[in-house]
């Protein structure tokens, strides 16, 4: 197992270095980031000054070396907009986003796992239809749209739940449910098909041939095996949640990383954009690594190297 986890850890570090390179080049896609950053009415001289100020006038290799050595220390320079170190700003926004993403994931898992499992265990039943329906909704209803509908229904019309901010305990309900809708659909679909497939495995037939009853078959044999694809999906979904939070945090004025991405992109605040991008990727990569650990703990085929 150690060897497996070590190699995954090394891969993760390489991946992050790759992200840093990618982020460096992304903002330079047009060749001149200073022009994008400057206000529309800025004169050629203003732009040149900005270019010099940001160091964008230096030779590319010098810029890269500078950026790279800063980035691996977490230093992305000052945010243009806030005039403060970009990374520090990003870190202060992290808790709100983690809170939102985990709540959304919790919602998706708590609803999605039982629904998918019940549907998959009773193919053709009404629960199965429900599971398939929820799976389809999750894939066809955009989260930014359902967020607007929720605000309309639960905040504007019914006045039950707040539509913005992170002040009250119940402010998180609408954002979390909106954000969790897509993972919910994915989890329902996955669990349903995993249970359906595992039911037909040879080892389930073996378990039946021993005289084990349905309940124990499902609890001890089916669900345990279905947990493996679930765990690997949770890692994937976390990345999606951070992406989806760009919309959801913007709509609900949730003070997290997603909103900071939208704002810094809109303001062309490139140091901040780069800091958020690298940091978000770091969180995602770390989550995937955690998933691998969990995966190894569940699956003995990985836990014990042959």
């Amino acid at each position: 197992m150690q060897r497996y986890l070590l190699s995954r850890a090394v891969q993760s570090v390489l991946l992050l270095l790759g992200v840093i390179v990618l982020v460096f080049f992304l903002v330079r896609l047009t060749g001149d980031p200073a022009r994008l950053m400057a206000p529309r009415e800025a004169s050629a001289q203003d732009i040149a000054e900005l270019r010099a100020l940001m160091g964008y006038d230096r030779p590319l290799p010098v810029q890269f070396a500078d950026f790279f050595s800063g980035a691996i220390r977490g230093d992305f320079g000052n945010s243009v907009h806030y005039r403060a170190p970009a990374m520090a700003l990003v870190v202060t926004r992290l808790p709100a986003t983690v809170e939102l993403a985990l709540s959304a994931l919790l919602f998706a898992v708590l609803v999605g796992v039982p629904l998918g499992v019940i549907g998959g265990s009773n193919p053709g039943s009404i629960w199965d239809s429900l599971a398939r329906g929820v799976g389809l909704i999750g894939q066809t209803v955009p989260n930014f749209w359902i967020a607007l509908i929720f605000i309309l229904v639960f905040s504007v019309n019914l006045g039950w739940l707040p539509s913005f901010g992170r002040g009250h305990w119940n402010s998180i309900v609408l954002p979390a449910v909106s954000l969790g809708l897509f993972p919910l659909g994915q989890i329902v679909r996955l669990m349903r098909s995993a249970v359906l497939e595992i039911r037909g495995e040879d080892y389930i037939r073996t378990a039946y041939s021993k005289g084990i009853n349905d309940r124990r078959i499902y609890v001890a044999h089916v669900f345990r095996n279905a947990a493996i694809p679930l765990v690997s999906m949770l890692g994937v979904q976390f990345g999606y949640l951070l992406g989806g939070s760009i919309y959801i945090e913007t709509i609900f004025a949730w003070p997290g990383l997603g909103r900071m991405i939208a704002e810094s992109v809109a303001a062309r605040d490139f140091p901040l954009v780069q800091a958020v991008a690298v940091f978000t990727s770091l969180v995602v990569v770390a989550m995937n690594l955690l998933t691998d650990v969990a995966y190894a703990l569940i699956d003995p085929r990985i836990r014990y190297d042959k």
Binding site: G18, L26, P33, G239, G243, G244, I246, I261, S281, V284
Partner: peptide
């Protein structure tokens, strides 16, 4: 794998803002 590791929407949003 690099592209698949970074949140997809993040890349798209950043690139869209730049180009």
């Amino acid at each position: 794998n690099l592209f698949l590791a970074v949140p997809y929407l993040l890349i798209v949003v950043v690139v869209a803002a730049v180009v």
